[in-house]
Design a binder for these strands. Structure first.
Lengths: 203, 203, 203, 203
DNA sequence: AATGAATGAGTGTTCATTCAT
DNA sequence: CATGAATGAACACTCATTCAT
């Protein structure tokens, strides 16, 4: 019977994206565990069971949210890392790119911040740990090059510096609201200024 | 009738503290919602129901963990704020005190970071919002004094600076492990150095 | 957004009524507290959790059972009270109406008898106390009118008489079984005969 | 070691009676199932576990309360039934005795009213059903004798009459408060007057 | 006699998930 | 595509009961 089609993998990519956006918003606001499927469905104007036409499970929703975000993030990062910039310029570009991602994927970033450690224990989310590792390599490498080149201080524990910069940037997702008074680029500029030169005036 | 003496309810604060320490560790590791009372009981070597001899509810456990932590935190902070130090010395003292608290109450700080926004919506945890407000006042005030005195830069958005310093410090609770290679004071020193002078070398 | 229609919550009052009838039967037989939600579900041929698709809580089940009963009861009573009958005819009509209610809502009446005092302490069940008060007013008023008119004895404590008649009628719910050898009207007739004329023969 | 005595069956009959009185009061007020052992212990000024020095179980408490009450009740009843009175005088004596028992054992009577049907299903409480049977026999016999002698009406269903008188009397336990304005004997007198002669005036 | 602490079975409730319609 | 109804496992919490001290 040619009239009965099995639902395609992407029945309507539009609706899918809408629903994921809704889910991401709720996950970010309430936390993954504390968010019920019913709540997401409410927000989407349907019943809880209906979501299962679009997604296999609640888990597959976060999965898709996070992997989509990380894919886009690494597209941007890889471009920067491949550009052959100097260490300081690389840091500037990475930070700027990060704030752009926060601007575009705020809920996903917030979920990533809050839940990734917890989720990464499951095999399905192994890519979270992978990403973390690549991230660390890229940053530590850049910082080390910078110390060697004399554009970053050599009297600091480099892992501490790494964590400092990393957290400094990403935590912003917890308070950032798109459409606020500062553009992502402006926030990046000020953050970079603080990170690079400190909050005490240079004499 | 003199026979109706209410028997004392909290006879051994010892056990209470032990159990709360266990609970805090699990809450910090798995998240409050994802932590089952059974899990805490397991870790404590008893059955789930037995916890209710000591505590009213799972909620009252986090409550006691967080309020105990905040009480101690504010003791330290108030001492610093009352000492009449200059803005820069105040910032140094507050940051150092913060890392000491992270060292002493790491699980509580981690819980606070992850759950306080969510918990603060309940009336019972109103003190979390209060604390947040006091915190912001203390920090913003100090930073403003510093800008006026010329010991902090005047070309930065002060709220951005506040968030920068605040997050930078507290997020450390997510990776800090007591007994590591750096003492809290050493970490504080390096963090302060980065925050105040930046990671680029002063020429 | 027109896509956000809230789906209707009570689409099939049918099932609801069936389930409430089942619940009422069990509550009446075992007592509200002694009845487990699992038991009701068993009787209804489903799992305990499934009941929560239809009802918010066990409490809301008794609530609906009792309030539905009282609503119908007062419809009948109000009709009688508004009919402008003499005191003796009013008493006859109220008693007859009561036995009809016992016939139609036996489980609800039994629950009301056993649990109302206990439930009425909760704000949610305030209407139980209200009903009690209205009930008392209606009866006492009728009895007083009867005494004044000389159709009821004036040598009896009127509150005692009230309790006597009230209990006499409602306790019947504890042994009455619909479909027995006497119709509600026949039982009412005999009860009225006893209450009005006594069990000793009139000489 | 002669110093260690096993607790006697009646360690201090005084205390036992006190505790049972307390328990009965709570059972009557809240219902057997809804009453926690902790609550009884609270009321008695001790901890829940301590009650188990005096009683085997919560069940054995009601057991002792109810059986003590029934023993005393039947002492009174048997005396009346053995006195060789006429049917009308027997009814008067039984009702009066009943109100005296309500006066002396109000909580026990209330418990009996509310819980006996439920408890009687357990073998341990078989005596409740036995008592019920004896009770029914005694009353039905007396009423039948009365009808035969012409001192009770012969136009009433005798089982209906039995239930009428029985319920009428015992339900009083639900509102009776010792020390009120009417003595048990006065209440009995008025009840008997209503039951025998009705609430309509004899012409 | 009574306490402090624990047990273990059970209770109401929640929630992700399924599936016939 | 979506609904209505149900499942079943898990959860926080309660409570009668036990027992060493």
């Amino acid at each position: 019977m040619p009239t009965k089609k099995k639902p395609q993998v992407t029945p309507t990519p539009e609706r899918r994206r809408e629903l994921l956006a809704t889910a991401a918003e709720v996950f970010a606001a309430q936390g993954y565990n504390a968010t019920t499927v019913r709540r997401i469905a409410d927000e989407a104007g349907m019943l809880a069971g209906s979501l299962y036409y679009h997604f296999d499970s609640k888990e597959s929703m976060v999965d898709e949210i996070l992997s989509t975000f990380l894919d886009e993030l690494w597209q941007g990062y890889d471009e920067v890392l491949a550009a052959g910039l100097g260490p300081r310029e690389t840091v500037e570009a990475l930070v700027t790119e990060s704030f752009r991602e926060i601007d575009r994927h705020r809920p996903a970033v917030a979920i990533y911040q809050k839940e990734s450690r917890h989720l990464a224990t499951q095999p399905r989310f192994a890519y979270l740990a992978d990403s973390q590792t690549r991230f660390e390599k890229a940053w530590l490498g850049t910082l080390e090059r910078g110390v060697a080149d004399g554009v970053f201080r050599d009297d600091l524990d480099i892992r501490l510096t790494y964590r400092f910069v990393r957290d400094t940037v990403w935590v912003a997702a917890s308070w950032y609201r798109p459409g606020g008074q500062h553009s992502p680029e402006e926030i990046a500029r000020q953050y970079l200024s603080m990170v690079l030169d400190g909050i005490a005036p240079r004499t």
